[in-house]
């Protein structure tokens, strides 16, 4: 079995895995990082979004071996070490942008990528970007509100970049 090594949430990890292991399986089953969820089998729902080298990726659609040597951030790596929520997490809470919480980690990770590249999105741009993240609870209304609020918060605090 091949060994894969990568940096996950700032920590170097190394495991032997079957070659067919998906990145999401590696995170959930080998590292116990169960914050990244699986909601479909066709790369549609976005519950599994993580960052690989700073870009949002559906971790159900990437093999663990493809992430060898790369830097991965999951939802568990977003809050500060002292527990302070990332501004995107805080905005989701403040604006009730989550209900059951299952799509939420993928949403937050996806939004972090959006706001890194587009710090001042319009409502339309937010809605277009979230095409790859399905939420069944919120009707997206409060998610969109949360993203716009997070964008504003992040613009006001440039030191705390989207990642």
């Amino acid at each position: 079995m091949p060994t894969v090594s990568m940096t996950v949430n700032g920590k170097a990890v190394s495991r032997e895995v079957e070659p067919r292991t998906l990145l999401v399986q590696f995170l959930r089953e080998h590292l116990g990082l169960t914050g990244t969820h699986v909601g479909c089998d066709t790369s549609q729902c976005g519950a599994c979004v993580v960052h690989v080298d700073g870009r949002s990726v559906k971790s159900c659609t990437m093999l663990a071996v493809q992430a060898d040597g790369r830097v991965v951030t999951t939802i568990e790596g977003m809050a500060a070490a002292d527990g302070t929520l990332h501004p995107i997490q805080a905005a989701f809470r403040e604006n009730h942008g989550l209900q059951c919480g299952f799509c939420t980690p993928g949403m937050v990770m996806s939004v972090a990528d959006l706001l890194k590249n587009n710090p001042s999105p319009t409502e339309r741009e937010v809605r277009e970007w979230l095409e790859g993240n399905i939420c069944r609870c919120t009707g997206y209304h409060n998610i969109v509100k949360a993203v716009l609020a997070a964008a504003e918060a992040l613009r006001g605090a440039p030191a705390h970049a989207a990642e």
Binding site: L33, G35, T36, I75, F92, R93, F102
Partner: peptide
């Protein structure tokens, strides 16, 4: 009131059955 359950969901610390 902002929700008490949100912190665990937002930080990936929920406990769903598959977890």
């Amino acid at each position: 009131l902002r929700r008490k359950e949100d912190r665990r969901f937002l930080t990936g610390k929920g406990h769903y059955t598959d977890d």
